[in-house]
Design a protein around this nucleic acid. Structure first.
Lengths: 252, 252
DNA sequence: ACCTGAACACCGTTCAAGT
DNA sequence: ACCTGAACACCGTTCAAGT
């Protein structure tokens, strides 16, 4: 309410830095730094992103970066917003069609840049990109008669779902790689590991599932069907809610 | 299928270390180390967990820890499993009642130990505790006629939801604290920030929502109602699925 | 086989000058 | 006001001995 000063990271993400009056002009801007950092993360993963490597990439001394970013954490926060693509266009589609694509696109860009999954998000969305994603989801639900708070909750549940799925698929796909030392190398392995480790007395249901090779079907376990399954759970719930409201166009 | 050797972390989590034949007996075991590390994380947050601080806590040299843990990352992985409580007991309750409590309990222990949210999970669950949680969810759905794969997917969607919600609530509650420098200090701030930053042309729906003070209602925005809302979205979806299967006891 | 001290490598960040 | 080199602090991990 009280119009407090914006937190520094937020100000920077929106280009709201108080412009400096005199003295030499800056030789960089934040977006060049962020793009360089994103490029490094794409190529080498998040561990490749060091203040020194980013600085080298843009051709300045490491220290110069601290003119543009308060800390490495801030840099990561800004990267996380900038690395997302624009949300898909609505084009007048019914809410369910659109939100299906929206959620899928959300998951997909996380899988394209799995290092995004490693950046801890301690706040609700504040960056322009993330807020544009939220905005589009709200717009898609505009005709449904749902209240704003409900629509926000739905969008947040869907983002959460996209995140969870991306993390799961990524964890299964990559397996033993930089970072998680000697972990799991795909689904066959996973069932195998569970089989070796489970105590039927302690994990009866799982032991039965493993025995029944529920994890053996491997390839199709991770594919799109599972994603659609959970997503439709959520969207069915939304649809039921809309119906209960006696609301607008509950097309699908 | 091929009964590969267990990844070292997994072996350690399940106490499957190959016992050593002769020479001095170990002066520690993994669980003492892990408990110490958890204690530190509870008191000081995850940054307080250093190999040196953990070693000091158990009274050995830093280097000794590497007898029990391959790396700090491994230690974190083991901590993440050990820090979870046991899942709630089913007591013959109908699936919907139980899964509601299950998901809520899941969120709650994450909020009790928010440092768990910071530990990146690159794999599906492999620890005994996490697998017991999964097992109980499968058991609760046993009478519904759903297939194992479906039940696993449901459990995974629910854990994901618990995680997302915990992260959201935590991010909103703590605000400016160690780690996320000068970020958001609660919901009033959030609405305020959005108000300052949004461009109505670019974020029309959100701008309208902020204008209508959809974020101003503050206190109740984050409370239990929102959690229940999204959860019921999911559970309604599950219920619809069960009904479609023409399946068992869809009580709840 | 287990424990340990010293040493190394790496990296984020502070500081005091420079222009 | 912006850039920079040197230096500091911190911490995970390797190594070579010790028992």
């Amino acid at each position: 309410m009280t119009k407090r000063a914006l937190p520094p990271v937020v100000a920077r993400m929106w280009g709201r830095e108080t412009a400096s009056r005199h003295g030499p002009r800056p030789s960089l801007d934040l977006s060049r730094i962020v793009d360089a950092a994103i490029g490094i993360a794409d190529n080498e993963g998040l561990e490749g992103v060091r203040m020194s490597s980013v600085a080298a990439q843009v051709g300045v001394a490491t220290m110069s970066l601290y003119r543009y970013v308060g800390s490495k954490d801030e840099l990561l926060t800004v990267m996380a917003d900038a690395a997302a693509p624009e949300p898909p266009a609505i084009d007048g589609r019914p809410w369910r069609d659109y939100l299906t694509e929206w959620t899928r696109a959300n998951r997909d860009f996380l899988l394209d840049r799995p290092w995004l999954l490693q950046i801890p998000r301690n706040t609700p969305p504040v960056g322009p990109r993330a807020l544009r994603w939220l905005d589009r989801a709200l717009a898609a639900l505009a005709g449904t008669g749902l209240e704003v708070a409900e629509r926000i909750n739905i969008a947040s549940a869907l983002t959460g779902y996209a995140n969870t799925q991306a993390a799961l698929v990524h964890g299964m796909t990559v397996g033993a790689e930089a970072g998680g030392d000697g972990t799991i190398g795909g689904l066959a392995d996973y069932g195998d590991i569970l089989g070796q480790v489970l105590d039927p007395a302690d994990h009866p249901e799982l032991a039965a599932a493993v025995h029944a090779r529920a994890f053996g079907a491997a390839e199709e376990w991770i594919d799109d069907a599972d994603f659609a399954f959970g997503l439709n759970l959520l969207l069915d719930g939304v649809q039921a809610l809309i119906a209960r409201h006696g609301g607008g166009a509950a097309a699908g």
